[in-house]
């Protein structure tokens, strides 16, 4: 495979286990530079497990291989993956009381870049990005996700996406729990990251985020596998017809 054709992100033969239980049952993905892919699927299909395991969540065992720009990252620790440029926006971001958003972000940006960032430059960038996401400047001095509303947490995930400038981002239900105005702001942040060269894999239960973030490919995830892949129009079909027809197809195909 030539340099140009090498996918930005790929994985092959990925199985994920919690203890003995198999949740993800063989996933192959190859996402080229400049594309946005979406994974849609019913609750409990294992799509959140897939992205958490790709990031290296310690509760999961991952089999298979994961590559970022051709470099195998399967065995790296989560923090090593992050420093290589992989990012996960959490469905349920974790609170770290006592640690301010600003001090956390500064530590994260420093880790990602591998060098100290000047306080001035950091402040300037932070305020610009917060303004883009329509966040009040006072937000920076609040404790990380501590007492945040659902919408605030999702905005903060997207703020991190913008500040860390990862090469590839896994976004887990970044649209859930948002009203329409917040959804538009979050979508704007995701599109800006994509325009800046970050590859995106969106995991979502609903089609509505895809009205604002246009995917190049939609994968339907059913029972731990990609049951079907198609273009952006597939999301609309799912919105109309639900997942039943694909679940039946998957059951028949899998038999």
């Amino acid at each position: 495979m030539s340099e140009e054709n090498r996918p930005l992100f790929s994985c092959s033969g990925v199985h994920v286990f919690i203890g003995e239980k198999e949740i993800v049952k063989g996933v192959d993905l190859a996402i080229p530079h400049g594309e946005i892919h979406a994974i849609m699927g019913p609750n409990g299909s294992g799509k959140s497990t897939l992205v958490a395991a790709l990031m290296g969540h310690p509760a999961y065992t991952l089999e298979g291989r994961v590559f970022l720009e051709g470099e195998e990252i399967t065995a790296l620790s989560p923090d090593e993956k992050a420093r290589k440029g992989l990012f996960l926006a959490f469905q349920y971001p974790v609170a770290v009381p006592g640690v301010t958003v600003a001090s956390f972000l500064r530590a994260a940006v420093t880790a990602r870049r591998g060098e100290e960032v000047s306080v001035r430059e950091f402040r300037k960038q932070l305020l610009t990005r917060m303004e883009e996401l329509e966040m009040d400047a006072a937000f920076a001095s609040r404790y990380l996700n501590d007492g945040f509303s659902g919408g605030e947490k999702k905005r903060l995930e997207v703020l991190q996406l913008r500040m860390l400038e990862p090469r590839f981002a896994l976004l887990d239900e970044t649209d859930s729990g948002l009203d329409i105005d917040a959804l538009k702001v979050v979508a704007k942040g995701i599109n800006a990251a994509a325009a800046n060269g970050t590859g995106i894999l969106l995991v979502t239960h609903y089609q509505r985020l895809l009205n604002y973030v246009k995917p190049d490919v939609v994968h339907v995830f059913i029972d731990g596998r990609i049951a079907h892949s198609g273009g952006a129009e597939l999301a609309l079909t799912l919105e109309e017809r639900g997942y039943d027809w694909l679940e039946q197809q998957a059951a028949m195909g899998g038999a």
Binding site: G56, P78, D79, V94, A111
Partner: peptide
């Protein structure tokens, strides 16, 4: 451990 994973996913080594 969820706090540790969250911070690790942002590039912070375990000790940090």
């Amino acid at each position: 451990p969820e706090q540790l994973f969250y911070l690790a996913s942002r590039g912070l080594p375990r000790s940090q």
